[in-house]
């Protein structure tokens, strides 16, 4: 069973993203929304853990939340896919279930 994990907390403030990544299985997806979009940035103290996860899980980030925070695509880790709200819905449909890491 594949799971789409959604995370909405900043990785610098809460351990939700770290805990989520520790509980993913190969073939899962992780979608970063709201303040969790900072987890998609390269060159931060949380980048290594996210970088390490991308060989086994699909990494996605919500574009509107990136734009709100002034984060351009060139600041993101390679291999992270930017999706819009329609893409969010597609992901929910693509994976068997969704788990929100609040």
């Amino acid at each position: 069973m594949s799971i789409l994990h959604t995370v909405n907390k900043s990785p610098f403030e809460k351990n939700a993203l770290s805990s989520c990544l520790g509980h993913t299985k190969s073939g899962d997806g992780v979608l970063l929304i709201e303040d969790a979009v900072y987890g998609a940035l390269k060159g931060t103290k949380s980048s290594d853990q996210v970088e390490a996860a991308k060989s086994t899980v699909g990494l996605y980030v919500l574009g509107p939340d990136l734009a709100a925070r002034g984060l351009a695509a060139d600041r993101l880790l390679d291999g992270v896919t930017v999706v819009d709200y329609g893409g969010f819905v597609d992901l929910v449909a693509k994976y068997d279930t969704t788990q929100a890491w609040l």
């Binding site: 574009g63 509107p64 939340d65 734009a67 709100a68 925070r69 002034g70 984060l71 351009a72 819009d84």
Partner: peptide
């Protein structure tokens, strides 16, 4: 941060 644009999130 510079370049903030919130049109798409409605705030």
């Amino acid at each position: 941060s510079k370049g903030q644009s919130t049109d798409a999130i409605g705030v």
